[in-house]
Amino acid sequence: ELSQEQQALLNYIVDAYNKHRIPPDQAKKLLQEQFNAEENFQLLTEMATSHVQVLVEFTKNIPGFQSLDHEDQIALLKGSAVEAMFLRSAQVFTRKLPQGHTEVLEDRIRKSGISEEFITPMFNFYKSIGELQMLQEEHALLTAITILTPDRPYVRDQQAVEGLQETMLEVLRKFCKLQHPQEAQHFARLLGRLTELRTLNHHHAEMLTSWRMS
C-alpha cells in the first residue's frame, strides 16, 4: 500500500502536472490546416519553448527540488528538457484525440523539414508509450523521475538528486503494483521507456543541427 505521505506526494505531483500544461489556444494552433514547412518550423519551436516553461513550473512543485543547489537545478532541467518534452508529447498521441487530430499532428511533424531518420524513432517511441496505456499518475511520476536523473552533465550533488529520485521511484513502483496487479512487468517496462528516451535525446541534438542547416 502507499503510505499516507506517499499518497499525498502522488496527489501533489499529479495536480502540478495537470495544472502546468501548454496553453490550449497555443495547442489548438497545432491543429489548424494551412501551415507550410517554414511555419511548421516556427510553430514547433514556439511549442518547444513554452513546453520548457511549463516543465520548469511543474518541476518547481517537485518536493525537494527547490532545496537543491541552484546550479544543479539548472543542470537537471537542461539535461532533461528534451526527454520530458517527448514524454509529454507522447501523451498527446496516445490520449483519445477527436477524429483525425493525431493524423494532422503527425502530418505536420512529417512536413516540417525534419528528416525521416529522426521522425521514425520518435513515432516508434509514441507507439511504445501508447501500448503501455499509462495512467496520468504514471506520466507525472515518470516525468519527475526523468528530471531527477542524478547523472546529468554538470550535476554536482548527485546523491541529493538520487535521494529525491528514489522517493519517486518507490511511489511509482507501489502505484504500478496496485494499479496493474496482473502485470508484474509494468513498472520495469515504464523504466525501459526511460532508456528509449535517452536515445531520442541523442537523436534530437543531431536533428536540430540538420534542421538548422536545411
Partner: peptide
C-alpha cells in the same frame, strides 16, 4: 520573444519566476 532565447536562458528565467514579462 522567449522562443529565440537559448534553452538555459529560458530555464533560468522560468526558475526565477519572472516569465510574465
Amino acid at each position: 520573444p522567449a522562443s529565440n532565447l537559448g534553452l538555459e536562458d529560458i530555464i533560468r528565467k522560468a526558475l526565477m519566476g519572472n516569465m510574465e514579462d
